[in-house]
Computed example of a mutant assay.
Amino acid sequence: MDLNTIKEVAHPQVRDQLPVWAAGDAWLAGGTWLFSEPQAHLTRLIDLTDFKWPALTIDKTGLTIAATCTVAQLDALSCPPEWIASPLINQCCRAFLASFKIWKTATVGGNLCMSLPAGPMIALTAALDGVCTIWKADGSERKINVADFVVGDQRNVLSPGDLLRQIDIPLAALTRRSAFRQISLTPVGRSAALLIGSVDNTGGLALTVTASTVRPIQLAFNAIPRANELREAIRHHIPDTLYHSDVHGKPPWRKHMTLRLAEEIREELQGAPRR
């Protein structure tokens, strides 16, 4: 869709060239949502592509994902064999249920900043203990866990003029055993529940709940809990008011599927046979 109110497109190449944020500004990376509907309130786009940030960087500390990394680039990443959690990357990329055109344009950062409950990049990076680096509008920098970055349906911690620069995934998270579950109300629908569990080297279980809730919810256990313990923990930490409601699923059904998928993850990571 043409944005016929845009009067200027800025092309900064380094942070010092970022223009002073003003009403009517918007960041432009992939633009898959930006150009999908009218944006009559916008007058200037600030194009991030000229920063030319490396999409993906692997080093001894883990993985750095630039905010401008596309879904296609992330899905094509060749991971070290010791990263046994790496199948989560492909599983979450496919939870988009989007065309190849979207994959080649939509960005990881854009998915986080849209902060939709069903955002699969939110699920992936939260479950892998991702840490966001935010360039603040005042020139400072802030780091925050992905799980705390999203605070509600299409709401996050960014203030006007703040920019998500990258997400850092620690090596320890990439080397954990993991399990993935996702369900939609229809065969090609938006995720209604997307859960990821992982077990660390001490035997502790971490469970990340997304899509069924308005924001990511994380539960941690010192060991893999019994079925009733897991069920009660979910009921305690996720009140009914946190379950999302839209045409892709109503809260009671999302709650039921969250409990069911969590138990499947518990059984898989414990090694119990599926019922």
Rank of each mutant, 00 (worst) to 15 (best):
L48H: 02
K143S: 13
A106E: 03
S78Q: 10
W27G: 03
G24Q: 05
I169R: 01
T49W: 12
Y243W: 00
I217V: 13
A223Y: 12
E37I: 12
E267Y: 01
F149R: 04
P87S: 13
I6G: 04
P12E: 06
L259D: 12
D47W: 01
E267L: 11
L163V: 05
R274A: 15
Q17R: 12
A118P: 03
T61H: 02
L56G: 04
M257H: 12
R142M: 14
W103E: 02
L185C: 12
A147L: 03
R94S: 07
A85Y: 02
N156I: 00
D162A: 10
V214H: 02
A118C: 03
D168W: 10
I224D: 09
W33S: 04
A29D: 00
R177M: 07
D47M: 04
P117F: 02
A262V: 07
M121E: 02
D200K: 08
Y243E: 06
R274H: 10
L124Y: 00
G109N: 01
F221E: 11
P80T: 11
T70N: 07
I217P: 00
A179N: 04
S36C: 08
L219W: 08
R274P: 09
Q154E: 15
A95H: 02
V150H: 08
I224R: 06
G130V: 13
M114Y: 03
W253Y: 12
S178P: 05
R15C: 08
T208F: 10
P12L: 03
G197L: 02
P120W: 12
P38T: 15
W53P: 03
L97Y: 14
R266Q: 07
W103T: 05
L3I: 14
S212I: 09
E263L: 07
D153Y: 13
A211I: 06
R275V: 10
R254Q: 13
E263M: 07
T210P: 00
R181S: 14
D153H: 14
A179Y: 13
I196M: 04
T32M: 00
R94T: 05
T208Q: 12
M1H: 02
I196C: 07
T210S: 04
A233C: 01
G161Q: 06
L230E: 10
I89P: 11
M257L: 07
H248T: 14
A192V: 00
D129P: 03
P120G: 13
T57D: 11
H237R: 09
I58R: 03
R176C: 14
A137V: 11
G119M: 01
T213Q: 00
V247I: 15
L128C: 06
Q39W: 07
R94A: 09
L28R: 04
G189F: 06
R190A: 11
V20Y: 08
I102L: 05
T57V: 12
R177D: 07
K101I: 09
N201R: 14
A23Q: 13
P80N: 11
L56K: 07
A206R: 13
G30Y: 01
L195P: 00
G152A: 05
L74A: 09
I224L: 13
L163I: 11
E268A: 15
L63Q: 09
A172P: 00
F96V: 05
S212Q: 04
P187T: 08
D25V: 09
K255L: 14
H256F: 15
Q154K: 15
G110H: 04
A272N: 13
A22Q: 09
T202I: 01
I58A: 04
